[in-house]
C-alpha cells in the first residue's frame, strides 16, 4: 500500500493537473476559433463567387438565342406579308383601275 501524501503535495499535484486541463481547453478554443475563421473565409469566398461568377451567362445566352430566333421569324413573317401584299396589288391592279375608270366615266350604276 502506498504512503499517504501530505496536503501540500496533493494541492500541488492537482493544481498542476488543472493547469494542464486549462491548456487542453485553451487549445480547443483556439482550434475552434480557427475553424470558425476558416468557415467565415470560405463563406466570403462562396458569396463573392456568386456575385461574380459567369455561370448565369449560359442561361442568358440560351434565352438570347431563343428570342433572337423568334425575332428573326417575326421579321421573316412580316416581310412575307409585305411581299404578299405587293404581289396581290400587282395581280389586282388592272382590275381595280378598270373599276375606278368605270366609276368615273359612268358613275356607280
Amino acid at each position: 500500500m502506498a504512503e499517504p501524501m501530505n496536503e501540500v503535495d496533493i494541492v500541488s499535484e492537482l493544481l498542476k493537473e488543472e493547469e494542464e486541463a486549462e491548456l487542453i481547453i485553451e487549445k480547443a478554443k483556439q482550434q475552434a476559433s480557427e475553424i470558425i475563421k476558416r468557415a467565415k473565409e470560405e463563406a466570403q469566398r462562396i458569396l463573392k463567387e456568386a456575385e461574380t461568377s459567369n455561370i448565369i451567362d449560359k442561361y442568358c445566352n440560351e434565352e438570347k438565342a431563343k428570342l433572337s430566333e423568334k425575332l428573326r421569324l417575326l421579321e421573316k413573317s412580316l416581310n412575307e406579308e409585305i411581299t404578299r401584299t405587293r404581289k396581290l396589288a400587282e395581280k389586282n391592279l388592272d382590275k381595280v383601275i378598270e373599276f375606278v375608270i368605270r366609276l368615273i366615266l359612268y358613275g356607280d350604276t
Partner: peptide, 27 residues
C-alpha cells in the same frame, strides 16, 4: 480532471464545427 478537460475540449470543437457548417450552409 483530465477527462473533464478533454470532454470540454471536445464539446468546444464539436460546437465550433457545427457553427462552421452553419456558416457555410448559410453562405
Amino acid at each position: 480532471i483530465y477527462n473533464l478537460a478533454k470532454k470540454e475540449a471536445e464539446e468546444i470543437l464539436k460546437e465550433a464545427k457545427i457553427n462552421a457548417s452553419k456558416i457555410i450552409e448559410e453562405a
